[in-house]
Design a binder for these strands. Structure first.
Length: 271
DNA sequence: ACTGGCTCCTGAGGGC
DNA sequence: TGCCCTCAGGAGCCAG
């Protein structure tokens, strides 16, 4: 399930195949994604050159001279570079075809992903306008987190999964980062000290960077642009390890639900 | 202003 | 072998 590391892995994988390339066609087989793919999009894209392949949070942004494609992988989406003749699988919802005979193919069984288009500054698009800072960029600090959490009673895990607080942290990395920071997931966000928030900001950076290095985490669906899985799963500390021994203290990893989400933690290491 | 709950969707896995 | 149920989750949306 794509979180920031999986989207960044995808971005890095597809970028060299797309930069400077001309879009020949967009072929939409299933427009019913999270939001419908605009019906006039194929006509708009034909002949445009991809000038940039960027990421904002979990959104991929393909920049052209006329506008920007906004793409989200939802929770089961993946993008692969394939030959246009590659056999179609179920749930291959659209192809972006390039003049040199290559194809960016979107696959998404649950259709929570999206493909949208904006001709204005993408930062001003409603989906992107209220996003919080990037966790791997300088504005993201423990002080920022503590400031943002002031007076708030919700659980710290839900707090760091809120894209208006910080982007890119989904259910897997929220549990992992809290374990590394030694903070219990249900602790009220507004009642955590500055020094512990500094440790949490560090843990978030560390866990995201480590996962990007491993090519992301593959639990069920995620594959990179070449169709290969990511390997971060092998070093997950708590996620989907209920009942197994904590790698740090040996006691059993707990699991439960918090804000309708599966949550994993070590009761001895996290307070 | 916050917070928690619901919703979209399909496939996997468990129980019987 | 097959059916039914539950769960997985990103994030917008809405009610309280």
């Amino acid at each position: 399930m794509p979180e920031l590391p999986e989207v960044e892995t995808t971005r890095r994988g597809i970028e060299p195949h797309l930069l400077g390339k001309t879009i020949d066609a967009l072929v939409v087989r299933e427009p019913r994604l999270r939001w419908p793919v605009p019906p006039d999009l194929p006509a708009k894209l034909r002949g445009l050159i991809v000038r940039s392949v960027r990421r904002r949070g979990k959104y991929l942004l393909l920049g052209t001279d006329a506008g920007t494609l906004i793409l989200h992988l939802g929770m089961s989406g993946s993008l692969r570079i394939v030959s246009p003749e590659a056999p179609l699988r179920k749930h291959d919802h659209f192809d972006l075809l390039f003049g040199y005979g290559s194809c960016l193919r979107f696959h998404d069984p649950r259709r929570f992903g999206c493909l949208l288009w904006t001709e204005s500054d993408p930062k001003a698009h409603p989906l992107l306008a209220s996003l919080g800072p990037e966790p791997l960029e300088p504005g993201f600090t423990g002080r920022y987190l503590q400031e943002k959490a002031r007076g708030r009673s919700l659980a710290v895990k839900s707090f760091i999964m809120d894209s208006q607080v910080v982007v890119g942290i989904g259910n897997i990395y929220a549990s992992e980062a809290l374990f590394r920071a030694g903070i219990a997931p249900n602790r009220a966000a507004g009642r955590i000290s500055l020094s512990r928030y500094e440790k949490l900001a560090d843990s978030i950076r560390t866990v995201l960077e480590a996962s990007i290095e491993q090519g992301g985490t593959t639990l069920r669906d995620f594959v990179n642009e070449a169709g290969h899985p990511g390997y971060f799963r092998q070093i997950l500390a708590v996620y989907e390890r209920a009942g197994e021994a904590c790698r740090r203290c040996g006691s059993g990893i707990r699991s439960g639900r918090l804000g309708q989400r599966a949550t994993y933690w070590c009761a001895r290491c996290q307070k």
